[in-house]
Amino acid sequence: MRNIALKLMYVGTAYHGWQIQKNAVTVEEVLEKSLEKVVGHPVKCTGAGRTDAGVHAKVYVANFRTTSSIPCDRLPLAVNTRLPDDIVVTGAVEVSEGFNAISSCLKKEYTYRIYNSRIRNAFFVDRAWFYPKYLDETVMQAAADRFVGTHDFAAVKSVGTDVKTTVRTVHYFDIRRSGIVIDCKVCANGFLYNMVRAMVGTVIYAAEGKFPPEAVTDILEGRCRTDAGPTAPPGGLYMSRLWYNEPGLTEEELT
C-alpha cells in the first residue's frame, strides 16, 4: 500500500469547504470521486486543514493510500482530466507510511486579501473583501503585532468544532499594502474555527478607531468573542503556505 501526497490549489467559491458533508458539495468529495476513477478503488483523503465554505487554497496538501502502481508523475494529469476547472492537482509524491497531511504539518500560513477602494472591482468578487473605507495599514500592523506569540485565542474563535485547547502560537501577522490591495498574512502552528477571519476583523476595527491597537492584548486576555472585531467574509481568505519535513514537500517545493 502506497501513501501518496497530492499538492493542490483550488478556488473555494463553489464548495462548502474542504471536509466532506452530508448535504453540501466539498473539495474533498470531488477530489476523492475523481481519484477513485483513476486508481480503481475507493480512497479516503486526509487534508492539511479544514478550510471553510468559500475559502480558497493557493497551496494545499492531501494524502491518500492506494494499491495502484500509477507513477506519481502521471497522477496529476490523470486526476485533473476528471476534476472541475476550479480544483487542480499540481503534483504528487510518494511519502512515508506515517505521513499525515494534517498531523505532519509543522505550521500554516493564511493570507487574507482586502480590496481597499471606493469603487469595487468585478474581478475581485469572492476573491477579496471589498472595503470602501480607507484603512491605515500602519494601525492595522500595530494591532496585528499584539496577536504574535503564544496566547489563548478564544476571543477570535467562532462557535464550531470542539477543541481541547484554544491556545495557539502565532509566528507572524504581517499587513502589506500594494496600492489598493492589502494582504494580511498570518502564520501559526494551528488555527481555530474562523480565527484568521476574526483576527482580520479585529485589526480593521482598530484601524477604524473603535479601539486602540494595544487593546488587542486585553481582548485576548478577556477571551470574549464579542469584544473582538467581526468575522471577515470567507472569499478573501487563502491557504497560502505549508511547512513539512517530508522529502518532496519542503517549503520550496510547495510554493
Rank of each mutant, 00 (worst) to 15 (best):
T161R: 15
T81M: 07
Y110A: 08
M239A: 07
D152Y: 15
I102E: 11
Y244W: 05
R120M: 04
L135D: 06
K185V: 15
A206E: 14
V170E: 03
L77H: 09
P84Q: 10
R65F: 02
L83C: 12
Y172F: 15
L220V: 07
V55L: 06
R168N: 08
A206F: 14
V148K: 10
P76Y: 01
A198Y: 09
P42Q: 06
F64H: 03
P212I: 04
P247N: 00
D86R: 06
G235H: 11
A57T: 00
K33F: 09
K164G: 14
Y172M: 04
G222W: 08
F124M: 15
E214W: 12
K37C: 13
G17P: 01
D73F: 14
A207I: 00
P213R: 11
N100G: 04
A78T: 12
G98R: 05
F153C: 06
V159F: 09
Q141K: 03
Y115M: 08
F124S: 08
L220Q: 08
S69N: 11
A5P: 05
L75I: 10
G54I: 07
P71W: 06
A62D: 10
I204D: 01
P71N: 13
R113A: 10
E214T: 11
T66V: 00
L6I: 01
C184E: 14
R118F: 01
T51D: 00
H171M: 12
G54L: 08
A232C: 10
Y244T: 02
E36T: 14
A232F: 11
Y238T: 11
G49E: 03
Y193C: 05
E28C: 14
Y193N: 06
M199L: 12
I70W: 07
T217Q: 02
E97I: 12
K157V: 07
Y10A: 09
T46H: 15
